[in-house]
């Protein structure tokens, strides 16, 4: 199973993600890789998520390749300049990594090394443009590569916004990202299906696969926390109430997530499940959603 194949064939694509730990212990990643093997089309590996320093996305992707999975190398613009970014993309290619997801990256002050210098030498659009050039055999400066990359370029979009400005900017940037080389999108977590449908009505014209972001709900508290603190996440009150009154929160969370996936299924080309600690439950959720 590979992400490119799923997208090319038009089959409903399923990706999920893993976050490396702080340190050299890879046992958790190996265990998750084992469980996900053969169950998903792609596995994103986060890149110093939330600006917290951890084991690298590149090395973790290489481990996943070895385990027979198709990793999506997440690469942020926050920590590396154009020299390091391009070098890591060449490294990814020789390590058998086929897909990359470009993000700007949370600001250092939101993480655990708040005094770090932020880089943003390139922004997301410029990095996508650069990778597209590398796929054509040239680096950013126009020099010819001895062996070009062949990376499937993904980008992110926030489908639900709290201001008109933000919503319109997201669509404009989606169009710009496509114009410079983005070939698929993974979205911020969606809970409000109607709002997502409104977004897709506008985004459909771009004819680029969109994988809707899904974060399984674990509790009403988690939903309220995200509503308050995570930009672009809006969990409807009815869903929060559903979670609050459940006796078995885990069972309810899995059930709510499966239902959500079913509601989203006809609106997009796939889902991207960010399980945040529930990585091992991903196959169970897919079964509940009849996607296994």
């Amino acid at each position: 199973m590979s992400l490119r194949e799923a997208l090319d064939s038009g089959r409903f694509a399923i990706t999920t993600e893993v976050g490396p730990l702080k340190g050299t212990d890879t046992s958790e990643i190996l265990e998750v890789a084992e469980i996900l093997s053969g169950k998903v089309d792609g596995v994103n590996v986060t890149d110093q998520q939330s600006a917290v320093m951890r084991l690298g996305s590149l090395a973790t992707c290489a481990i996943l390749v070895e385990k027979g999975l198709d990793p999506v190398f997440q690469i942020t613009c926050r920590d590396r300049n154009r020299i390091a970014l391009q070098s890591d993309l060449l490294s990814a290619s020789v390590l058998g990594i086929k897909s990359v997801l470009v993000i700007s990256g949370d600001f250092p002050t939101l993480g655990d090394h708040i005094d770090a210098k932020d880089v943003y030498d390139l922004d997301s659009e410029q990095l996508i443009w650069t990778i597209n050039r590398m796929n054509e055999g040239y680096d950013l400066a126009g020099n010819e590569l001895q062996g070009k990359t062949d990376l499937l370029i993904g980008a992110v979009v926030k489908p639900v916004s709290d201001t008109e400005e933000s919503f319109e900017l997201q669509l404009a940037m989606m169009e710009k990202k496509i114009s410079v080389g983005a070939r698929f999108f993974q979205t911020q977590a969606v809970y409000d299906v109607d709002a997502f449908e409104q977004f897709m009505r506008r985004a459909e014209q771009f004819r680029v696969p969109v994988l809707a972001g899904v974060i399984p709900l674990k509790s009403a508290g988690m939903a309220r926390y995200m509503n308050k603190n995570v930009s672009g996440v809006f969990v409807p009150e009815s869903m929060i109430a559903d979670m609050a009154k459940a006796k078995d929160k885990t069972a309810k969370g899995l059930q709510v997530t499966a239902r959500l996936i079913n509601d989203l299924k006809d609106l997009c080309r796939g889902i991207h499940m960010m399980a945040i600690g529930w990585e091992k439950k991903v196959p169970e959720i897919l079964e509940l959603a009849n996607l296994a």
Partner: peptide, 30 residues
Amino acid sequence: KGLRNGACGGASNGRCEVSPEKPCGWELIY
């Protein structure tokens, strides 16, 4: 973040994610 091509997507209610006391520059630009 000094982004040149558009917003990072982190703003909430038009406020910057990094410094909520200031508006999202890209929403102003929009």
